[in-house]
Write a protein that binds this DNA or RNA. Structure first.
Length: 936
RNA sequence: GCGCAUGUGGUGAAAUUGGUAGACACGUCAGACUUAGGAUCUGAUGCCGCGAGGUGUGGGGGUUCGAGUCCCUCCAUGCGCACCA
């Protein structure tokens, strides 16, 4: 019998499906283990070889844990709401529900061919009403909650209302900028009360800036805006304020930071999240002045945010963001022309330009001054685009001797610089140190800056000039999209008050539309459905919210749904969520580092606050699979011809050679013969330029340039897993992806090495099966030598799998097989544990051979072999012997030898004698089981 | 600019605690079997050298009996953030 992987793989995939091998129950008398992949967005392009890398790794681990006696939850689903489907609908008129369904079918068939052990009965799709019903339910829960800083958790909004009725905002730790007394609150109209509550709700509606494109009549995502114009059509895009929904993730900022200490993520990932949250400690300080405006003298106060209150005596000027509302109010008559011109100039510049020309210094003096709070000094107030309106208070106190940007600004506009750090400031460059001793700093003189900060804040607070303040870079997350293909909000507006639907009105199903174009005034496509939008009957009447929720809504809690996917009474039962608990292993790409992971962590904490679950971090351990890059190839063009590529750069430009990875050899050589055959297969149109072939021994060729890039359809460097599965089989494909290198590392995709893994499986097959005779495995008892190599491999492979070192585990299989083949071993006693160990990596061939050996049950449910110490202990070791640290020879010595015995054995060795050259070693270093070193 | 990660043969890589650098594969070369080889098997393969030997983990320096591994410094590449007060 030959190794016919196509028949074998099909047979077992069908059998596993029919017999429900991978079905998991919520209680099996075994310890639970939850292995999850980041579920995919089902794009029209299907899977490429980069996708399955993480899926294979998690599948190997899930299967391994199952063999080790765990009840393993390993589900898969689809993040099936999203922009591309809607974009496709706009272009082709096909309904997103239809294309999404088709894409999911493609993805599933591709995944099934790779032999994953998913329990498909638990599949979830975020666009399915039975799923998004609970996304809407959770949204309403967020809407009806506030974050109580005193108890440090989310609570029903009713507890806030009770507090407001009782004592107003006076006892609230975080007043969200609202101050009312109980009497005022109780006298409020419903509208006033609701408006105030909006400042506290965890899901709230407010005005936010969006990218508005007038010509397209729609709001665009950041990705859709390129260089300040729309990706489609290239129309201008401007910032516009629109009513949006937000999630108050900032209230969870500190807990999101703290939680990172308790999870097993890579340091890089944690750092990325910390940077994104961007916590800084400092103070808000008020600077007051009187503006001499056209309408007379006008007192004003500028509130700045600073992380360095210790430098307050070094303030030489103030800077307001151009968008700051005070700019126009305080500008003097003399400066009003210049300021207007400057504001006009800033407005003309896109965000993009402001970023691109970051080093260009611009600004304008307003003519106004503020008083220094601690000394007699007038400080000029400027406006400049280097201060951002969105961060802090949109205003800064500039300390040129300690901050680069402030220094450059002062130099550029000839503003005198005060030195408060003595010799630490050289006048040529700012010094941001915290360790200098303060001078010219009033009550802070003589202090180390690091210590002075707290003292400065204490004084500022005591004098009523400001307050200690923690600031976050992170903003509340925008939670609405002016789009069709997303979860509708269960909200009805009436008299500008948002009323939630009641729970029994859920799900609010996404109505069918004919057209996907935008509605009026930038509203989403749903606003075109007059009948749907205007609710005239039922418990709440009014106008429906016409935005839909963003992609991360459904993905923020899907891991909980998998524990109890069919539940129609609750989002998942407490018992199911308690049984499975946290996700033990979560695998996915780094691209979700800050978005998805932060939101799902926040939702988990929220759900925890309400007691539905007993853990507040969703993922115990996170592994980020590295990106698989594709090789792209480029022709070198010179004049009207394509020439052979050389590294010295004597060409004019590069032309992308589509699908070049299918024609170019490993040295970058492209032969005319191959290229012409390639053109025939219609994979590439002939380039417009003629090719100047080089000649060598009758062969015509050129060299092309090779580059590694992220795999993407648009770069034509994508390999489809289906092709490889067809050519080599799923088992080879799985093992090869694991063999490629460490899972977390990015690596170039290259199919050239796949043969090695394929040969390994063929060799294993031949060890068990002869073409003529069939099964050739014997029942003879194994020898000690055979057991030794087996048990060494059991130890190595289980340890490597346990630490996600799949590439070395695969090579350990190869070593084991090579050793067994040297020993001419075909024994069932050895092959059985080998097949069980192999089954997580190559499940089909393992199942086939395991059954052929005569076992009744599936290899999937076998017991993982145990390494027996008895076969692992050695009695002697071949020691490397070094002289002065240089390895000169090896000597086999018993492990029980004493230091003296070792020394005499070593000294009597010929090679050692030769290198010693009559001298006596000063010292003999002998480390048992490691090495021997002689110091001469 | 800041933060994080990574630099090892022609290629993917290994070396888990400071202890024989390059396991395991790909590729290449030589050979065997064969009508044939894109099947299979055997052997060789970091670099320099006929050899003894020398040399070698991005560069330089250090700690150590001993460094790919630890420390300092510089360089390169990738990723993330980017005028964040």
């Amino acid at each position: 019998m030959e190794y016919n992987f196509r028949d074998i793989e099909q047979k077992w995939q069908a059998w596993w499906k029919e017999s429900g091998t991978y079905k998991v129950t919520n209680n099996a008398g075994k310890p639970p283990f939850y292995v999850l992949d980041m579920f995919p967005y089902p794009s029209g392009a299907g899977l490429h070889v980069g996708h399955p890398l993480g899926y294979i790794a998690s599948d190997v681990f899930a299967r391994y844990k199952r063999l080790k006696g765990f009840n393993v939850l390993h589900p898969m689903g689809f993040d099936s709401f999203g922009l591309p489907a809607e974009q496709y609908a706009l272009e082709t008129g096909q309904h997103p529900a239809v294309t999404t369904e088709k894409n999911i079918a493609t993805f599933k068939s591709q995944l099934e061919k790779i032999g994953f052990s998913y329990d498909w009965s638990r599949e979830v799709q975020t666009s399915d009403p039975s799923y998004y019903r609970w996304t809407q339910w959770l949204f309403l829960k967020l809407f009806k909650s506030w974050y109580n800083k005193s108890t440090d958790k989310a609570e029903p909004i009713e507890t806030l209302i009770a507090e407001l009725e009782q004592s107003g905002t006076v006892n609230l730790k975080d007043k969200k900028g609202c101050e009312v007394s109980a009497a005022q609150w109780n006298a409020f109209t419903e509208k006033q009360q609701q408006d105030l509550l909006m400042n506290f709700r965890l899901a709230y509606s407010s005005y936010g800036e969006v990218n508005w494109c007038e010509q397209l009549g729609t709001v665009l995502a950041n990705d859709e805006v390129i260089n300040g114009v729309s990706e489609r059509g290239g129309f201008p895009v401007e910032k516009r304020k629109m009513r949006q929904w937000f999630l108050r993730i900032t209230d969870y900022a500190d807990r999101l930071l703290e939680g990172l200490e308790r999870v097993d993520f890579s340091e890089a990932m944690k750092e990325m999240q910390r940077n994104w949250i961007g916590r800084s400690e400092g103070a808000e300080v008020d600077f007051s002045g009187v503006a001499e405006t056209e309408n007379g003298a006008k007192p004003f106060t500028i509130k700045v945010y600073t992380t360095r209150p210790d430098t307050i005596f070094g303030v030489d000027f103030m800077v307001l963001a151009p968008e700051h509302e005070l700019v126009r109010e305080i500008t003097t008559k003399a400066q009003s022309g210049a300021v207007e011109d400057y504001l006009q100039y800033v407005k003309s510049r896109s965000d993009r330009e402001r970023l691109a020309e970051a080093r260009q210094i611009t600004g304008c003096f307003t003519g106004a001054y503020v008083d220094h709070p601690f000394m007699e000094r007038k400080i000029p107030v400027w406006t400049s685009e280097y201060v951002l309106s969105g961060y802090g208070t949109g205003a800064i106190m500039a300390v040129p001797c300690g901050d680069d940007r402030d220094f450059n600004f002062a130099q550029h506009f000839n503003i005198p610089i005060t030195n408060i750090i003595g010799a630490a400031f050289d006048g040529r460059e700012a010094n941001a140190t915290k360790d200098a001793i303060l001078e010219n700093s009033g009550f802070l003189n003589g202090m180390v800056m690091r210590d002075a900060a707290g003292i400065a804040i204490d004084r500022i607070e005591k004098d009523g000039l400001g307050t200690r303040k923690v600031n976050y870079r992170m903003h509340d997350a925008g939670f609405s999209r002016q789009r069709y293909w997303g979860e509708p909000f269960p909200i009805i507006w009436k008299d500008e008050i948002a009323y939630p639907l009641s729970e029994d009105e859920l799900p609010l199903e996404l109505p069918f539309v004919e057209k996907y174009g935008p509605g009026k005034n930038g509203e989403g496509p749903l606003s075109n459905l007059e009948d749907w939008v205007n609710v005239k009957e039922g418990p709440t009447t009014g106008r429906r919210e016409t935005s839909t929720m963003p992609g991360y809504a459904g993905s923020s809690w899907y891991f909980l749904r998998f524990t109890d996917p069919g539940n129609s009474n609750e989002f998942a039962s407490k018992s199911a969520m308690d049984y499975w608990g946290q996700v033990d292993l979560y695998i996915g790409g780094t691209e979700h580092a800050v978005g998805h992971l932060l939101y799902s962590r926040m939702w988990t904490k929220f759900i925890y606050d309400y007691g539905y679950i007993s853990f507040d971090e969703p993922y115990k351990r996170l592994i980020n699979q590295g990106m698989i890059t594709g090789k792209s190839y480029f022709f070198a063009r010179k004049g009207d011809s394509i020439v052979s590529y050389t590294e010295d750069g004597t060409y004019d430009s590069m032309i992308r050679f589509k699908y070049g990875h299918k024609a170019v050899d490993s040295t970058g050589k492209l032969t005319r013969k191959v290229f012409e055959a390639f053109l025939k297969e219609a994979m590439h149109e002939a380039p417009a330029q003629s090719i100047v072939w080089e000649q060598n021994g009758g062969e015509e060729f050129i060299f092309v340039k090779e580059e590694s890039e992220k795999m993407s359809k648009s770069k034509f460097n994508v390999d489809n897993p289906d092709d490889l599965v067809y050519k080599y089989g799923a088992d080879t494909f799985r093992m090869y992806e694991m063999f490629l290198g460490p899972i977390e590392q990015s690596k170039p995709w290259d199919t050239k090495g796949i043969e090695g893994v394929n040969r390994f499986l063929k060799k294993l097959w031949r060890m068990c099966m002869d073409e003529q005779k069939g099964l050739v495995v014997t029942d003879e008892p194994a020898t000690v030598a055979e057991l030794r190599v087996l048990h060494k491999a059991i130890k190595k492979i289980s340890e490597d799998t346990e630490r996600f070192s799949f590439n070395t585990a695969v090579s350990a299989f190869m070593i084991l097989l090579n050793d067994l083949s040297d020993l001419k071993c075909r024994k069932k006693e050895i092959l059985t544990p080998l097949l069980i160990m192999l089954s997580p990596y190559a499940p089909h061939i393992a199942e086939e051979l395991y059954r052929a050996l005569g076992y009744e049950g599936s290899v999937v449910t076998a017991d993982y072999p145990q390494a027996d110490e008895k076969y692992l202990t050695e009695s002697e070791k071949e020691y490397p012997v070094s002289i002065n640290g240089k390895m000169r020879t090896t000597i086999v010595i018993s492990l029980s030898a004493t230091q003296d015995e070792v020394e005499s054995i070593v000294m009597s060795n010929e090679v050692v004698q030769r290198w010693l050259d009559q001298k006596t070693p000063k010292k003999v270093i002998y480390v048992k089981n490691k090495m021997i070193n002689l110091v001469v």
